[in-house]
Every structure is written in structure tokens, then in C-alpha cells.
């Protein structure tokens, strides 16, 4: 059981079926960036604290630095590359981005919150965003951008 075993690993990435051969023990983060050519997902800490590596797994935000790619076989992964640019307008205008290192991860968690406003009955936007650290903005711009996007969703039919 010491010899690395290669096998076929398949999952749905941004709506497309992906297949490749490997041991399954590479981090999802590294597979996205270095094997599949999607560098939008960033590495900050590599320990689950900063959220720069956030992707959606079956629609829920997770840290791709703490997942081995074998664990997502047959599941759905969506990265920041799948987010339409117009989905970010409120975050642009509220000052949610300065250096941008945290932004891909912030966008992924923010989209999740905006798409599931029911979550706000039990937790605040700030609580839901606590897994995305930002060294620049002081967070107010991020929180305000999300609040604005939520207001827009509410008023649009």
C-alpha cells in the first residue's frame, strides 16, 4: 500500500466535466492553479484561516487549501472564474478591494451570502464573512458592498 496509485478523477468544474489521472492527494487549490490553468483562486495562509482560496463545493464556500482533489470526485466545484463580472459591481463601488489579494475569496463567500439571504436570519453578514481576512480595507467596504447587493436583489423582481 506504499506505492502511489494513480486513478481517474472526475468532477464538474465551472459547469464542465473535468477528468485527469492522479493519486488524488494534491490539494484542490494546486490542481486548479497549476494543472487546470485557473489561477484566480489564491493561496494566502495554506491553513484555512484567510479564505483567499475559497471556492464553492456543491454550492457552499470551502477552503481549497484544505481539500485533497480526490475528495471532490463526482462533485461540483465552482471557482471565481465562474462569477460574471457584473456580479461584482457593488463590491467595486463600495471600496471592497485595495490590493486585491483577498478579493477572489471575498467574492466567492459574498456571492454565497447574496444568493442565500435566508442565512441572515441566524447570522450577520460580518459573521458569515469571518472566514475571509483582508489586510487592506478594514472590512467596511466589503460589508457595505454585500449589503448594497442584497438591497438590489430585494428590489429587483
Amino acid at each position: 500500500m506504499t506505492k502511489p496509485e494513480h486513478r481517474d478523477i472526475g468532477f464538474t468544474l465551472n459547469g464542465e466535466e473535468i477528468r485527469f489521472s492522479g493519486t488524488g492527494t494534491e490539494r484542490l487549490l494546486d490542481v486548479l492553479r497549476y494543472r487546470l490553468g485557473l489561477p484566480g483562486t489564491k493561496e494566502g495562509c495554506g491553513e484555512g484561516e484567510c479564505g483567499a482560496c475559497t471556492v464553492h463545493l456543491d454550492g457552499v464556500p470551502v477552503n481549497s487549501c484544505l481539500i485533497l482533489v480526490g475528495q471532490v470526485r463526482n462533485r461540483r466545484v465552482d471557482t471565481v472564474e465562474s462569477v460574471a463580472p457584473e456580479a461584482l459591481v457593488e463590491l467595486h463601488t463600495s471600496g471592497a478591494t485595495q490590493c486585491g489579494a483577498c478579493t477572489p475569496g471575498v467574492v466567492m463567500t459574498a456571492r454565497f451570502v447574496i444568493d442565500h439571504p435566508g442565512l441572515l436570519e441566524r447570522a450577520s453578514v460580518r459573521q458569515l464573512m469571518a472566514g475571509n481576512l483582508c489586510r487592506c480595507t478594514g472590512y467596511d467596504g466589503i460589508i457595505e458592498g454585500i449589503a448594497e447587493a442584497l438591497r438590489q436583489e430585494e428590489t429587483s423582481p
Binding site: G48, G51, T54, L57, V60, P61, V62, N63, L66, I67, T109, F112, A123, Q127, L128, M129, A130, G131, N132
Partner: peptide, 12 residues
Amino acid sequence: GRQVGAVQIQAR
């Protein structure tokens, strides 16, 4: 549960 890490940790 809400105080374990944040959403990304709670989800996994």
C-alpha cells in the same frame, strides 16, 4: 457550531 472557525471550516 457557529463559533468553530467560519463558514468555510463549518462546511467541511
